[in-house]
Design a binder for these strands. Structure first.
Lengths: 174, 174
DNA sequence: GAAAATGTAAAACGTTCGTTTTATATTGGG
DNA sequence: CCCAATATAAAACGAACGTTTTACATTTTC
């Protein structure tokens, strides 16, 4: 495990658990086990570090969504929250914390959300055997809602979303 | 308009637009048009100010949800995002920004979300003429999802959630 | 019209912020 | 074996953080 990977892993955990702005560079350097000089050589700045974290998280999250049915999509989310916990969407959280005014972060969020939207759309199309943009938008909303509601309703929120999605997909098939 | 109201109004706007942690006390005092001494006499601390903001927002938000049908619930959300914009749920955002480690804030969020859950449950019951906890959970998730998705999908996310809710409620009636 | 309450401006508290610098140690490749 | 390259520790940068204090002005109230 190289230093950059170690840094990004430590940073993701701290940003996720305590927030982006609330996490100081001293905590970052300590958790990553490196000097601030080395940290800045690898990341450039705090905002760029956040962007690196988001990029890595996008890779890891999207890899889990390589499925072909809407039901498998929510099963994947159930796995995700079991492993990663229920602290909401790190992308939208980082956007909110910076007021959308940090270019590197805003850009990483936009890229991820567009890829995510496209993935949901593809999964719906694969499931139905045809495109259905309106239904895909509804499934996306259930997915986001499950992520958000799970913060205070727990993992049950995901299974509730899963069954709602099954009803909507059933309606699309008939 | 008394000073406390003026302070809370200014603080809500700044916290919402730029984030809680990213908003310094100097910006707060300037926007509220008062000295820091007066601000601290009214709010006590920054965390208590955030709790006051959340309490006021709860009052304003819940007042809009005094409806009797699920469709009216989403119509109310459409009005809300038209007036307040699409920056997500300030309650869950404040919780995330503080890592859930600030008691005043965590408590305000818990209280609001429980009241919100109860309201959704009541609206579903009023709409169906009977309790339906599972359906209420699904509607809650659509509501949260619309709020969250609207950040990057715009206000259309709310109407998509609205039509999904209509399908789920139709299913519950038959 | 004195007293109490409530406001102001401004400086200072010690701490932490993100970032850079200086100087030194370790280490892998030609 | 030496030389880049790459790491380290530690101090320092000015600025901003949340908060408190000092000193003074204004308004409200009995």
């Amino acid at each position: 495990m190289n230093l950059t990977t170690k840094l990004i892993t430590a940073a993701e955990k701290l940003f996720d658990r305590h927030g982006y702005m609330a996490t100081g560079m001293d905590r970052l350097t300590e958790a990553a086990g490196m000097s601030s000089r080395t940290l800045y050589k690898h990341a450039g700045s705090k905002a760029q570090l956040m962007a690196l974290v988001l990029s890595e998280r996008d890779r890891r999250f999207m890899a889990r969504l390589e499925v072909e049915s809407v039901d498998a999509l929510f099963a994947a989310l159930e796995d995700w929250v079991r492993v990663e916990g229920t602290r909401g969407c790190l992308f939208l959280r980082s956007l909110a914390e910076t007021g959308g005014e940090t270019p590197e972060i805003a850009q990483a969020v936009t890229a991820h959300k567009e890829a995510f939207r496209q993935r949901v759309s593809d999964v719906v199309a694969s499931d139905l055997g045809r495109e259905d943009p309106a239904r895909a938008e509804q499934i996306l909303i259930l997915f986001e809602g499950a992520t958000q509601a799970a913060i205070y309703r727990g993992a049950d929120a995901v299974s509730a979303a899963r069954s709602a999605a099954a009803i909507l997909m059933g309606r699309a098939r008939s």
